[in-house]
Design a protein around this nucleic acid. Structure first.
Lengths: 140, 140
DNA sequence: CCGGAATATTAGCCAGACTAAGTTAGTTGA
DNA sequence: TCAACTAACTTAGTCTGGCTAATATTCCGG
């Protein structure tokens, strides 16, 4: 019974709700929203095109357009063009955007680090082992 | 380095984003939203007052008012009064609400069960072991 | 060179979160 | 006792973030 996939699903389902709340608290009151943070993170490795960003964040293109508009208004990213294809808009971090990303990441990780520090060494190991499995779940 | 809490925090942070998307897909296209489902779940054990519901779901009272309005319009809950204190509004599942809750829970668990079935037995065990730790994290 | 596919944006809708302000009912203490 | 404070909700207004449908633009294949 303990290994019944349905039973496990029920547990996962309930734990997931808790984690959503945890995530919400983790980013509460920071100078960018959780989504904005995610988009900035996608830009860290260099310019990206709109379609890539939308796909990576599992949203429709118009949704990403609005997000990028806001980030652009805030001076955190700039739009550019692909010289090889005039249909394509590229998006790039400004230096201010890069600084903001670093700051938010630092705060976010610090918050989680504090939570993790309250666990035992063994619990942290159990958690670390499960992370790849969870990541796989999310990608199915 | 692998056991460094900060490093772990970064991984958790990234996995959490994936799980949010997973959760979103899990309830996509269902007859109640994820939040509504959560509220219905809170009512399963009997009538609750607005303040309790808001607190349990970590939202402000006005937010819960709007949610309950929608559920009431949909015929899934009814508002009542506390005879001992006329300021208090109670919220209760209708039989339709109870049926809906059961149906959505079933679909949700079925979805997750399918995802879990794609894992190896060992991965499921790893996941099962980590669930209590994750639950603890969310509650800190 | 023309019609269809690809890339974005605009516009308009809805859910869900917040704060501020208003209403009604209980509580308290001078 | 009753005036003032506090508690429980609701209403109104604003924001983010998601969606679809409709509209440019640009590219590409025949």
């Amino acid at each position: 019974m303990r290994d019944d996939p349905t039973h496990l699903a029920e547990q996962v389902s309930s734990v997931l709700r808790h984690l959503v709340l945890l995530l919400r608290r983790t980013v509460a009151g920071q100078p960018v929203t959780s989504q904005q943070y995610g988009v900035l993170g996608s830009l860290e490795g260099g310019p990206r095109r709109m379609t890539e960003l939308a796909e990576e964040h599992a949203v429709q293109l118009p949704t990403m357009t609005v997000q990028i508009n806001r980030l652009e208004d805030a001076g955190l990213v700039t739009r550019g063009s692909d010289p090889a294809d005039a249909r394509v808009r590229t998006v790039e971090l400004t230096s201010e955007g890069r600084a903001r990303l670093r700051a938010v990441r630092q705060a976010r990780v610090a918050h989680l680090t504090r939570e993790l520090a309250a666990l035992t060494e063994q619990e942290r190991e159990t958690l670390a082992a499960a992370l790849p499995v969870l990541a796989k779940l999310g990608r199915l």
